Simulated assay, not measured.
Amino acid sequence: MTTTISPIASDAIDAPTAAADSSAAPAGVAHPKAIRSYVIRAGRVTTGQAKALETLGPRFVLDYAAQPFDAVAAFGRTAPLILEIGFGMGDATAHIASVRPEDNFLCCEVHEPGVGALLKRVGEQNIENIRILQHDAVEVIDHMLPEGSLDGVHIFFPDPWHKKRHNKRRLIQAPLVAKLAARLKPGGYIHCATDWEPYAEQILEVLSADPHLVNTAPAYAPQPAYRPLTKFENRGLRLGHGVWDLVFRRR
């Protein structure tokens, strides 16, 4: 087993994730002052994933560069651009890209087995509208995505950091939301989903507090038709667990 840089998800197979973009640790809590959109965990690349990385990686995996992202050059066309932060093993990402062929999907994930798994699906399903950045999403937002460059953002099942003392590590907090809101075009959206109710409550509070965003629902949104149920969700629903979707738009 090798060690790779990767996000931690609420389900290692089906759900994407990310950690928080935060500041100094509280007294007695040992974690870095600057939290990236991932943490380190072990991962193993299968033979099929390795083949996909070798054969499809040069076409679909982009190099990180601290300069404005040229979407037309990367995708070979002009189309709405959707950023996905953390896609896990890529099941939902591949499905959404397939049912929304009119959109371009820029997907950030540092977990190499996950990148390989999504590339494998891209090849099997002949998906053309996905590009992958195997890099920290926070740096991509800061250095590659100018204001007003995005039509949407997807953040599905980020790590909930269940323990209260670790809540500061959560990805969806006011500073990051402000960055994302600034990069949305008018009418662009942020779609978050979580299976942890306290995190859903925090996400609702943070998104509602941003002056540039407006909720599309009275509180939580119905699950949009394009987002599929993952194996993890189906298992949770059978056990009576909830899933909360939130969809906010740029004013």
Rank of each mutant, 00 (worst) to 15 (best):
Q125F: 05
N234T: 13
I155A: 07
M1H: 13
S98D: 02
K120W: 04
D11G: 13
G187H: 12
D63C: 05
L204Q: 11
A217V: 07
I85Y: 11
V153E: 06
G187N: 08
P68D: 12
T78C: 06
Q202D: 13
E128C: 11
V72N: 09
K163I: 02
I5S: 12
V243D: 00
P158C: 01
A117T: 01
A97K: 01
P228S: 12
K164G: 00
T17C: 15
D21Y: 15
L204G: 08
A34G: 02
G86M: 07
E147N: 15
K168M: 12
G116E: 06
E147R: 14
L184S: 09
E139L: 15
L145M: 14
E201G: 03
S149M: 14
I96R: 10
A52G: 10
P101Y: 04
A193V: 14
H166V: 01
V61A: 09
I13R: 14
P160Q: 04
A117V: 02
G88H: 07
E233V: 10
N104V: 05
G86W: 10
P80V: 05
R131T: 10
G48A: 14
L213K: 06
G152T: 13
F105C: 04
A225D: 14
L81R: 09
T230L: 09
V122E: 01
Q202F: 08
H95K: 04
Q67P: 00
G48L: 12
F232V: 01
F69L: 13
P7C: 15
A178N: 08
P32C: 04
L56S: 11
R238F: 00
C108M: 10
I82E: 03
F157V: 05
L213Q: 01
R121P: 00
A178M: 03
K185G: 12
P101L: 04
P26W: 12
H212L: 14
R169Q: 13
A30T: 15
P218M: 02
P222H: 03
P146Y: 13
V110M: 09
G123H: 08
V138A: 03
I172Q: 03
A27N: 09
K33Q: 12
G236K: 02
I130D: 06
T2M: 10
A9P: 01
M144H: 08
A225C: 03
I96T: 12
E54L: 08
L176M: 14
R59T: 15
Q49N: 13
P160F: 05
F157D: 02
W161I: 03
P113R: 07
G187S: 03
V110H: 02
E201V: 15
F232Q: 03
